[in-house]
Nucleic acid binder design. Structure first.
Lengths: 236, 236
DNA sequence: CCGTAAATCAACCCAAAGTAGGAGATACCT
DNA sequence: AGGTATCTCCTACTTTGGGTTGATTTACGG
C-alpha cells in the first residue's frame, strides 16, 4: 500500500524536513525495533533511537526525560491495542510529531488514529523505501495516510471533526481515570473495579464522575459507546 | 475480490445445486434489485424475484406468505446497517439459505455475518460472472466467503464459535425486545426509551429483564459490549 | 376452545449508579 | 510559601437499574 499526501502546504519530497536526532520507537517486537533503527539511521542519519516495548514504559520515559524530536508508535502493543496509545501519547508528548505504524488498514481505525492527532499512518506492509519516503513526508510537516484511504467514503457514523473532539476529551483523562475507564469498558461494576484496582468504591465513583464530566457522558453506556466510537481499545 | 470455498462437501461448480424458483432480494437500492433480478433470471432461470427495500418490509413478507427458496440480503439497509439484518432474518426465515451482499470487506464484519448463519458473503465489487459463480456455490450448499478472508488471521478478540453462540442469543429476541436493545445501544435511559417507544417504563424494564436473561448479560454495559462484539449495528 | 407466546402495566424491593460536598495526603511548580 | 493537580476516602442523598411476581390483553395455532 503506497501513501498519499492529504494535507500538504509544501512540496511532497522536497519540503523542509525537520532534523530528527532523538527518536522514540514504541513497538513490542524487538526485530521491528532493530530494523527500524538501522533503516532510519542509514536513511536519515539519526544517531540513536530509543526503544520501548509498551505504552507504560514509553510514558515513563517521556515523563522523566526531555521529549524526543519524533515518535514512531506501533498500534498493537501488549499495553494498548487501539487508538488508546495514540490518545495517551498525544497528551504526554504534546507537540511531538507521532507517526503510527500498523498492520491494520481499516479506514475507521485510520480515522480514529488521525483524529487523535497522529502526524501519519504508515502501513507495516510498506517496503523499506516506501516507508522512508512516507516518514520523510511526515517529518516535513505533512499528514500522511495510506493511499487507499479516503475519510469521506469510509463507512463511519462519525465525522472526523467529531472524532477529534472526542479524542481530545479522552486525552484529558488522568492516569487513574483511564484505568477505570478501561474497566468500565470491560463491563465491570463499580464494586468490581474497586477490587481490581485496590481502591474503595467511593474513590471509583469519584473518578467516574470526573471522567464522565470530562468526556460528556451521563450514563456509563454512553462512556462505552464513546470509547468504541474512537476505537480506544481492541482492533476490530 | 474473488471468492474461495470454505466449507465444501462436494465439487465446487458441479455440486447438486438447489432449484431456486422463489427468491427474495432485500436491498434499498432499486437499481441493484433490478440488476440482480435480471442477471439471475438469465443465469439461473428463476421466474421472478421479490424485492423489499428494508428489513421491516422483508420480515412482513416472510411472516405473511410462505418462505422463499433463498434470500439475498444487502447489509447496508436504511433499517439495519450491521449484522442485525442477518441475525433477524435468520430467525424469521429459519432454514432458508441467506447470501449477504455487501460493499464492506472488513474481516470482522464477515466473521460476524457468517457467525449469524449466512450461507455466503458476497462482495458488491464482484463482476456479474463472479457473483453468479459465487451464488451457484452458495446454492450448492457451500459456505462462501471472499477470497482474502481468513477467520484465523483476522484481528478479532472473539472466536467464531463464540460469535455464533452470541448471535444465536440475539436471534432469540422478540421484535419489541430488539427495538429496546437498539435504544440501549444508543445510550438511552429506561425513561427515555419508554418515551421513544410510547410504552411505560415498567414495560421497558420487563423487556430489558427478558432480553438480558436471553443474551446472558447482568449489566447494560455488557449488553452494549455484546452487541458491538457481533457488530449488530453500524458498519465500522 | 384452549394453550402458548408476546406485549402491556403495576407494585415492590434492593442494589447499583450517579450527585454533592467536604477533607486529608502527596507532589509538583512557581 | 502558596497554588494547582491528583488520588484518596467519607457521608448523605437521589435516581436509575435490575429482579420478582402477578395480572390483563391480543393474537396465533392446534
Amino acid at each position: 500500500m503506497r501513501h498519499q499526501i492529504v494535507v500538504e502546504p509544501c512540496g511532497s519530497a522536497s519540503g523542509v524536513m525537520m532534523k530528527v536526532d532523538d527518536l522514540l520507537i514504541v513497538d513490542d517486537h524487538p526485530l521491528m525495533c532493530e530494523a527500524l533503527t538501522i533503516t532510519l539511521r542509514v536513511a536519515f542519519g539519526l544517531r540513536q533511537a530509543q526503544c520501548e516495548r509498551n505504552l507504560a514504559a514509553a510514558i515513563q520515559r517521556l515523563k522523566c526525560g526531555k521529549l524526543p524530536d519524533a515518535i514512531l508508535l506501533d498500534l498493537n502493543l501488549p499495553d494498548a491495542k487501539g487508538s488508546e496509545g495514540m490518545v495517551t501519547l498525544a497528551r504526554v508528548a504534546a507537540g511531538v510529531p507521532i507517526a503510527v505504524i500498523s498492520a491494520n488498514e481499516d479506514p475507521a481505525m485510520i480515522s480514529a488514529v488521525m483524529a487523535a492527532g497522529a502526524q501519519g499512518y504508515i502501513s507495516k506492509s510498506l517496503s523499506r523505501e516506501a516507508m522512508c519516503a512516507a516518514l520523510r513526508r511526515v517529518w516535513s510537516g505533512e499528514k500522511v495516510t495510506p493511499e487507499g484511504y479516503d475519510p469521506d467514503d469510509a463507512p463511519q457514523h462519525l465525522a472526523l471533526p467529531d472524532m477529534e473532539e472526542i479524542a481530545h476529551r479522552f486525552a484529558s483523562l488522568t492516569h487513574q481515570q483511564s484505568r477505570i475507564l478501561r474497566q468500565i469498558c470491560l463491563g465491570k461494576a463499580n464494586k468490581e473495579i474497586s477490587y481490581a484496582l485496590n481502591i474503595s468504591e467511593a474513590t471509583v465513583k469519584t473518578h467516574i464522575a470526573a471522567l464522565m464530566d470530562k468526556i460528556g457522558a451521563r450514563r456509563r453506556t454512553q462512556v462505552v459507546l464513546l470509547a468504541k466510537a474512537i476505537k480506544l481499545y481492541d482492533c476490530d
